[in-house]
Amino acid sequence: MTQATTEPGAERRPATRRTVLGGLAVAVCGCGTAQWAPARAEDGEDAAAGPDALPPQIGDRFTYIYGEKMGDVIRPEDLPLGGDQKLVYPMDPTTGTIRDGSRLNMMLLVRLDPDTLDEETRAAAAEGVVAYSAVCTHHGCPVSMWSKRAGTLYCSCHGTEYDPKATARVVAGPAPRRLPMMPVGIEDGEIVVAGQFTSWVGSQNT
């Protein structure tokens, strides 16, 4: 998914008589909350390049991906100790911009006992909070579920299980590689981005 999605044929011969039905998302879910960005629909264009689509920046905070608490900055104590994980987006602390312009920015936070983390994971964690990309390396689905049985991060499409205590290495399922890990720190009691992802985000399927 990091590859360019430009389709040369479509570029050479742009669509004629194209119909783009804007505002459709509202009708689909009946809830009026989904985002719809017609610009994203153009042939071969990458995600919009606005600040909401930038990858996580050092100093970014984290917020919830949806609902009344979207926009609230997440602190370690907001996360249950020992899982499950919370899906989050990075947020610019100055402007309040939530970086949900690309699903590739969807991340997960999980708070674990620091003594249970392996050395590499502990080095990237803060107060036991570990941050990973929530985009499965198999087919790009959200790693939104938690296996109570195994204490693993569980992909919502095809069941890959990642060990959050050990750099999210794959312990079961079809994904080819671990989730990218993001070093985090604590500033003023808030969880902040403190580095770069340890590897590239996403799958290679599209």
């Binding site: 194209r18 039905l21 985002q35 629909a41 042939d43």
Partner: peptide
């Protein structure tokens, strides 16, 4: 030829459609 003649949005994948 496989040339794209039109494209219409029916569902929104971002909400699962």
């Amino acid at each position: 030829t496989g040339e794209l003649i039109w494209r219409t949005w029916v569902g929104d994948w971002k909400v699962g459609a």
